[in-house]
Simulated assay, not measured.
Amino acid sequence: MRIGIASQLLGTGLQRVLQNQPECEITWIAQNGLEAVQKCETDIPDILLIDPNLPILDGAETTRRIMKSSHSPILLVTDSVEGNAAKIFEAMGCGAVDAVDFAVNGSAEEREKSTQNLLKKIKTIMRLQQFSVRESKPSALVIDVKQANIPPLIVIGASAGGPKTLSAILSKLSAPCASAIVIIQHVDRDFSFGLTEWLNNQTSLTVQVARIHERPQAGHVYVAGTNDHLVLTASLRFAYTPEPRNMPYRPSVDVFFNSVAKYWPTPGQAIILTGMGRDGAEGLALLRQVGWHTIAQDEATSVVYGMPKAAKEIGAAVEVLPLDQIIRSIQQSVTKNTR
């Protein structure tokens, strides 16, 4: 695979690692964001590694400009997850697929671990472009109408471009809110707590990582928080599972949506937002089959038109809407349920 690198500080270390991988070819190395944009205009690599702290144009602006003319997947590479969380989420909102911590200092063991994490991320992202979910669907909808205090549920799946889109949605919602909202955003567990904290600052609702054995509560927004798949159990509580192991999407929107279709007693609202690949399309179709109101984001307002396109193509979405209308639909749903 052909790889482009945009980093002033990490370029040498990334080059050293990748040149020892027979399947990797370094196409070019840019020292700043503007140079990376210009190189992409004439030579688009299979995958881009971008430092969020680029000079001239930072990682977010570089990502935004590249995504306007190319859908080459972008992996953010940083030497400090905690120190760059805000910049990472901003760049992911502009279309970056994922982020990884790459250690340039530290012990040999730490450097080797970060190298393996980097290579794993690269391979996963390349699989995302080809992967189509073929997991078996739940055979039946299990409903326990006697469950007490079950709030209306809104479930959302997102990937590349998701953080910024989710921020736009949550910033328009306010307490009191009778619905519970669960978000599956493709993001590494190292960034899930930072993403949750960042989203929590965008809304008056309570945004938190979904915890094992916890049941969705009205007025709360839950974000999947590990590299395992978030699911709902028969007791309507959260759990995490490593299965299916062969899925590159972690956490998977399809896996969560399937569990919701199987166990949640009343239909709610399910939404697929911007993202690369096909994750969530089949789960959305299953939710539509059991009575949920399903929505896919339109192409014009999607940063990456992969997941919502797949949902549209298989007829999973009741509606295909631009972002502003998706926000309005959620607001109407929340207002209706609050009355």
Rank of each mutant, 00 (worst) to 15 (best):
I5F: 13
Q8L: 10
L10A: 14
T12Q: 12
Q15H: 09
R16E: 12
Q19K: 06
Q21I: 11
E23M: 11
W28Q: 05
I29P: 10
Q31V: 12
E35W: 07
C40I: 01
D46M: 01
L49Q: 05
I50S: 02
N53Q: 15
P55T: 08
P55Q: 04
I56C: 01
R65H: 14
M67T: 14
S70F: 13
S70V: 09
S70H: 09
S72T: 15
I74W: 05
V77L: 02
V77P: 05
D79R: 05
E82T: 12
A85K: 15
I88V: 15
A91H: 15
A96M: 09
V104A: 07
G106F: 00
Q116F: 00
N117C: 01
L118W: 03
K123S: 13
T124S: 11
L128K: 08
Q129F: 00
Q129L: 13
V133P: 07
R134F: 13
I143R: 14
I150S: 01
P152R: 12
P152H: 04
L153D: 03
I154P: 01
G157C: 09
A158Y: 04
A160Y: 02
A160R: 01
K164Y: 01
K164M: 07
S167I: 00
S171G: 09
L173Q: 02
L173E: 05
P176L: 09
A180S: 13
A180L: 06
Q185I: 13
H186T: 06
R189T: 06
F191Q: 03
S192I: 12
L195G: 04
L195A: 04
N200L: 06
T203A: 04
S204N: 08
L205W: 07
I212W: 02
E214I: 09
E214A: 10
E214V: 14
P216C: 06
A218E: 08
V223K: 02
A224V: 05
A224N: 01
G225H: 04
N227D: 14
D228R: 00
T233K: 09
A234W: 04
A239Q: 08
Y240K: 03
T241D: 07
P244F: 07
M247G: 04
P248F: 12
F257C: 02
F257T: 07
S259N: 10
A261I: 03
L273S: 15
G275N: 11
R278Y: 13
D279A: 06
A281H: 03
E282M: 08
L284D: 06
E299K: 10
V303L: 07
K309I: 02
V320R: 04
P322Y: 10
Q331V: 00
K336A: 10
K336N: 11
N337S: 15
R339G: 08
